[in-house]
Design a protein around this nucleic acid. Structure first.
Lengths: 176, 176
DNA sequence: ACCTGAACACCGTTCAAGT
DNA sequence: ACCTGAACACCGTTCAAGT
């Protein structure tokens, strides 16, 4: 990944935070880089490809940090909070993820890590995948709705309560 | 609601199914109606307003049908399946819902109905709201991901397994 | 390697004017 | 009441040509 490509990506994410997804335009991005719109196509083959790179970047930065400690439930709770925080960290972050298509490297890796966590706690691989799928879909669905509703009241408590419902479902219907 | 407005809405939903959300353009919609693009603004003040009306229509048609029977869990399972079916019934239906902002009349009513169901099963109103919120966010998140991944393998079993995890979480952590 | 200039085929929206 | 015609200020993308 060339330095210039990384600069384009960084500028795109900054622009997203400033103007939102709907106003994130190749022409505006080019202007911010002091360049003509067509020049962007040296670095990304399409706007779609750039958006995908942004998603990947945001997922990776959300999945960073030390692995949490505690039992499997405490770890999943921490990781779920981190995923939500990562999406809310950027304007329209959740909606950007939702428009995404292919799971991508970082997303797949973090999914596998979560499944492994439940397997180590005693679940079969299939059951673990169901549990993680449920949790991940909830987190995504929650963040999309939360961000769509605008800056309204903080929904931290509601989010954690939802995570707890799912963790308790995993405990009673998936783990031995 | 004038007849012509209803025709515009119907044409918009047909066009969505044919070309998808990204190609759903005021000009294409106008062409399908045999009219100039500007004429649409007699019936909807903006494309956003038209999209909102489409969401409302789809939500309402998904929430139609007789109330299911069985205990609360069987009823929630049936309703969750219906919500997912409603979103998948139209091309990019899930993504369209996700771009939506205000909850809207139909959505609010169906949320209240679901909460009432859990209250009758013995939950407090707050706990019931948490449970329903969890289920609804999961359903939306699941459908968004499912539709984003394209027509791939049917995910009926994965969906129902996820619903069951949440129902079992509601049973053990919310109900008396 | 990176960018310009200019074009192409589009967008959503507005508004006077028509019937 | 509903629509036309025409414009305005934009889009994403391509591509020869420059440095």
């Amino acid at each position: 990944m060339s330095t210039r490509q990384a600069e384009v990506l960084r500028a795109a994410i900054e622009l997203l935070d400033e103007v939102g997804l709907d106003a994130l335009t190749t022409r505006r991005l080019a202007a911010r880089l002091g360049v003509q719109a067509g020049a962007l196509y040296r670095h990304y083959p399409s706007k779609r490809a750039l958006l995908d790179a942004m998603v990947e970047h945001i997922v990776a930065e959300a999945g960073a940090g030390p692995p949490p400690d505690g039992d499997w439930a405490a770890q999943l709770r921490t990781l779920a909070k981190g995923m939500r925080r990562g999406m809310l960290a950027h304007r329209d972050g959740a909606r950007l993820m939702a428009t995404f298509q292919a799971p991508g490297e970082a997303a797949r890796a973090s999914f596998e890590a979560l499944v492994g966590l439940l397997v180590r706690a005693g679940a079969t691989r299939e059951d673990a995948a169901v549990g993680i799928d449920t949790l991940v879909c909830f987190v995504n669905g929650f963040a999309v709705e939360e961000q769509a509703r605008g800056a309204g009241a903080p929904r931290d408590r509601a989010f954690e309560a939802g995570v707890d419902v799912i963790l308790s479902g995993i405990r009673t219907s998936i783990l031995v």
